[in-house]
Structure formats: structure tokens, C-alpha cells
């Protein structure tokens, strides 16, 4: 397997009046071709920042300070705007979080397809455009006749989300990045979108990266999971391993907080404490104020992401490179 995207040391901040929000701090990970990677974290943990920095679509106050994003060996971040514009959507498509406001309210759906095609100088005539757009809309189980000539306000939230996915598939990109594809939707529509993404993954040769705060969604869809806490990547592992054997205390807490995993409701445990402020993040490991295993070193020095075994990566002083640091971590897993 080949990494199609390789993120190295990515650091991005937001400039606000009070200072800088360190939303993505030295993030490194690899995405294999045709795999599904979930980026999981709480709200405001910096997960969207990572994918927006990767595609250079940060809001105006966002800045990328350092790092590389290699797409097939080419650094996306050093491309000129025009080169980047050509790659966007044709090779890497990003479906943003706010699906409800992402369509131009005064344009019909068909015109969104048309603009996208024209932007990339694809020579389709009108009939071909309709054919391709209908094909993609059918793929996301929408009725093309009903949707193509509708205005965004005539569509429901779930339909809009699916239109965005259909738009993203239009030019058959190699990488599809979805920001919170299921949040802001009701449970049934969520299940529908998840089912749909599963089917797409089987049907198409496509690499999926998606961001979610819902670890259950990640469990359903992803091959690999990256856990983000306070702007740091704290654990990266295969989905199977992450659920079977979570390494980082935060991941552990995250999994314990979902009900489906715990048949016994009394075992559902929230993580104590509040998410860290990214304006003034805690020193050392950003999780230490909430961590039961916090040691002296956790308060002083930030743990680096290290590889433990079988590709499992974690940033925690409970572990050392190539294996476990001390046995207490195993004992503690009994809670």
C-alpha cells in the first residue's frame, strides 16, 4: 500500500484579538490509497483545522505556520493558487461542515454542477453534464429530475448533504475529504449517509478522509482512526485496534463514553473536566489536567507521537518506542 497523502509536522493557528489559537500543532500522519481515515475529536479540538490546512481552505484569519502536505509526493502547501485550484475538486475534494449553507441560495442545483465543471475546463456539453450529474445524484440516492432544477431551499438537510457529496464525486476525485458529514442531521439521515459512504467506498476507487466528533461513526466507516485532542494528534491506529485496545487514556475515555459499546448503562463514563483552551493550552501534555495517570513529566514536557507496535502510534508517556513503558497502563485499563 502507498500513502496517497502524507502530512508532516503541520502547524496551523488562527489569529484572534486575544492572541493565537493553536488549533493544529505539529500534526503528522499518512493516509493509504483507497483507505478510509477518520479524524476524531471533541468540538473545537482542531480537527477541521487539520483538513482545512491540508487543502489550504482555512478561513481568512487562519495561518499555516509550518509543515508539508504531500499528495503523491508533491507538497500541496507550496503550490501556487492556480495550480492548487486545478487540483482542488478534480483530485482532492473537500465537502465542508456546513452543508446547510454551502449552496448558493439563488442558484439551481444544476448550475452548481455546471460551474464546477466549467472551472476545470472539462469539455462536456449540456447533455453530458446532465447525464453525469444525474449519475452522481443517483449514486447518493437522489432523484435527479427532482433535484437538478430545484433551489437549495427546496431541499432538506439530508438532501443538501447528499447533493454536496454528489458534487464532490462529479469529477471523480482520488481523495474525498468530508468535514462532519453526519452532524447537524437527524439520526435516521445520519444512518443513511453512513450507509451511502460505505457503498461509495465499495463502488469507487476513492480515498476517504472524514472528520467527526462521533467515535461511533468512525467505528462504522473507517479503516484507520486519528484521535485529536487540543490540537494534537494523540493516537493513530487501525479502527479495530483502537476499539479493542485503546492506548491513550483520552481515547480510552472517549470509547467509554459511548453507550453502544457499553451494554451496561452504568459503565458509560464521561471524561471528567473540560476540553482545553487552545488560546492558552496547558503545558506539557494537553490532556494532563484531565488524565488519571498524569505524572510529573506530563505537566512539563509534551509527549511526542511514537510508534508502539504494528503501526500503532501514540503520544503518551505511558508508552515507549517499540512497546509499553510501564505495566501500570495495563492495570489501569481495567476501569
Amino acid at each position: 500500500m502507498n500513502p496517497i497523502i502524507k502530512v508532516e509536522d503541520l502547524k496551523a493557528v488562527y489569529l484572534v484579538r486575544e492572541g493565537t489559537i493553536k488549533a493544529a500543532d505539529r500534526i503528522s500522519f499518512e493516509v493509504q490509497e483507497n483507505s478510509v481515515t477518520a479524524i476524531v475529536g471533541e468540538s473545537a479540538s482542531g480537527k477541521s483545522t487539520i483538513i482545512e490546512a491540508m487543502t489550504k481552505t482555512l478561513p481568512p484569519n487562519g495561518r499555516i505556520l509550518s509543515g508539508k502536505v504531500l499528495y503523491n509526493g508533491k507538497d500541496i502547501l507550496t503550490l501556487s493558487n492556480e495550480e492548487l485550484r486545478k487540483i482542488k475538486w478534480k483530485e482532492i475534494a473537500l465537502v465542508p461542515q456546513a452543508a446547510q449553507q454551502s449552496l448558493n441560495p439563488t442558484m439551481k442545483i444544476i448550475d452548481h454542477f455546471k460551474d464546477t465543471v466549467e472551472a476545470h475546463r472539462v469539455n462536456w456539453n449540456h447533455n453530458e453534464l446532465i447525464k453525469k450529474a444525474s449519475e452522481k445524484l443517483k449514486m447518493v440516492r437522489l432523484n435527479p429530475e427532482a433535484v437538478l432544477y430545484a433551489y437549495p431551499l427546496q431541499l432538506s438537510g439530508g438532501m443538501k448533504q447528499r447533493v454536496l457529496i454528489a458534487l464532490a464525486l462529479l469529477l471523480e476525485p482520488k481523495v474525498l475529504i468530508l468535514d462532519e458529514p453526519t452532524s447537524a442531521l437527524d439520526v435516521l439521515t445520519q444512518a443513511h449517509i453512513i450507509q451511502l459512504l460505505k457503498e461509495l467506498k465499495k463502488m469507487l476507487n476513492i480515498t476517504l478522509i472524514f472528520v467527526t466528533h462521533d467515535i461511533a461513526v468512525a467505528a462504522e466507516l473507517a479503516d484507520n482512526v486519528a484521535v485529536i485532542y487540543g490540537g494534537n494528534l494523540i493516537e493513530f491506529n487501525s479502527t479495530f485496534q483502537i476499539f479493542k485496545n485503546p492506548l491513550h487514556p483520552y481515547t480510552n475515555g472517549l470509547i467509554n463514553s459511548i453507550m453502544a459499546v457499553n451494554a451496561d448503562m452504568s459503565k458509560v463514563k464521561p471524561i471528567p473536566g473540560d476540553p482545553p483552551s487552545l488560546l492558552n493550552p496547558p503545558s506539557g501534555c494537553r490532556f494532563h489536567p484531565r488524565c488519571e495517570h498524569a505524572m510529573e513529566i506530563c505537566k512539563k514536557e509534551k509527549p511526542q507521537l511514537i510508534e508502539i507496535e504494528n503501526g500503532a502510534q501514540v503520544a503518551c508517556y505511558l508508552y515507549k518506542e517499540g512497546g509499553r513503558w510501564n505495566e501500570t497502563s495495563d492495570k489501569n485499563r481495567s476501569y
Binding site: 475538486w89 465542508p96 448558493n104
Partner: peptide, 13 residues
């Protein structure tokens, strides 16, 4: 607005 950023994301001129 979000739809402007989405238009940019689609690589529109």
C-alpha cells in the same frame, strides 16, 4: 458565507 468557501473549495475561478 459558507457557500463562498464551498465555491472556492470546488476550485471555481
Amino acid at each position: 458565507e459558507d457557500f463562498i468557501r464551498f465555491a472556492e473549495a470546488r476550485g471555481l475561478r
